[in-house]
Amino acid sequence: MYEQSIYLWEEISPEEKAAVSKHVEACPNCAELFQQIQVMQERVTEVSAKKTIAPNAAQLTSRIMQAVHEQQRSSHVNLATRLFSPFQLIRYACATLSLVLVISFGLEYTHTGTQQKTQITTLEEGVILSSAIIRSSAADRKKRKSIFSACKAPFTDQLAYRECIKQQFQ
């Protein structure tokens, strides 16, 4: 029951450790196993302390960096190959053609738009002119009316009325 905990002594919780310790004190077999595991772990720790060192650490670093540089170069070449592959060039040509077409249509549209704008300006001017004419004729009518009304009131004689009108217009 406690065997696994004895093997995993360093990994178990403090509560589990307390329970295992209590059992080990009372069980000679588990106490012996515990002792053996501790000895084994000490030996393993001794082995773990001895790290393998690369005989030519600097040479290994150079090898790694050389491989990295090659990787970097090949990724640049791959990028260039991808960018300038025949398929990609066809795509660029199509894109350029599309762009040219779009620009051409744009220019055409702008040109037509200017013409329409000119017509619109002329129409505006026409409206302004018409309204000016209307305004001037209205003023003219008002003036004429006042002349007629001014001459009509004091005179009943037709001849005198005509003379008055003539004088007013002059």
Partner: peptide, 15 residues
């Protein structure tokens, strides 16, 4: 920078 990273961790990696 990568070289520095390699040099710092190479011993652990080999071990």
């Amino acid at each position: 920078a990568f070289r520095a990273l390699v040099e710092a961790n190479q011993a652990f990696a080999i071990s």
